[in-house]
Amino acid sequence: MIQNNRRLLSALFFSASILMQCSPSDRKPEGSQRAEMRFYQYYVQGKLLYLVHCSNCHGREGEGLQQLIPPLAQSDYLLSNIDKTVCIISKGLNDEIEVNGVKFSQPMPPHDDLRILEIAEIITYISNSWGASSGIFSAKKVENLSSACQ
């Protein structure tokens, strides 16, 4: 019996030590690594989508076109209105906007064929490129914000 108890105890101790390794304090680096992976997945996918859906007008390097199509690179409007871009991408834009001191009034067509995740990936790409680093823009966030689009 004692022998058995010892075995049981050592087994318990052994599994506890394994469990300890998975304690929250130890999981942290693994979690941030996962977040980083997720960010790059969004970013890389976002770049591919950007080249297909956005770069024709906004330029491969987000440079825009004269005073016709606003730049996305180093754009004060974009970086201070990131949440707004959800509706701008899906529903288009007809209002005049000012970007880096220049007014733009050419309407932007809607892209309602893009799915929520795709919009999140595109926003992650454009808000973390050309010198900007705003972090991941999650699909959950796009889903929440897009319900308010008109």
Binding site: N56, G59, L65, L68, I69, Q106, P109
Partner: peptide, 16 residues
């Protein structure tokens, strides 16, 4: 055409 969402902006940037 001015409201062209596809190839026109590229064409215009090349014409510029």
């Amino acid at each position: 055409f001015t409201s062209c969402p596809s190839i026109c902006p590229i064409m215009k940037s090349q014409l510029i």
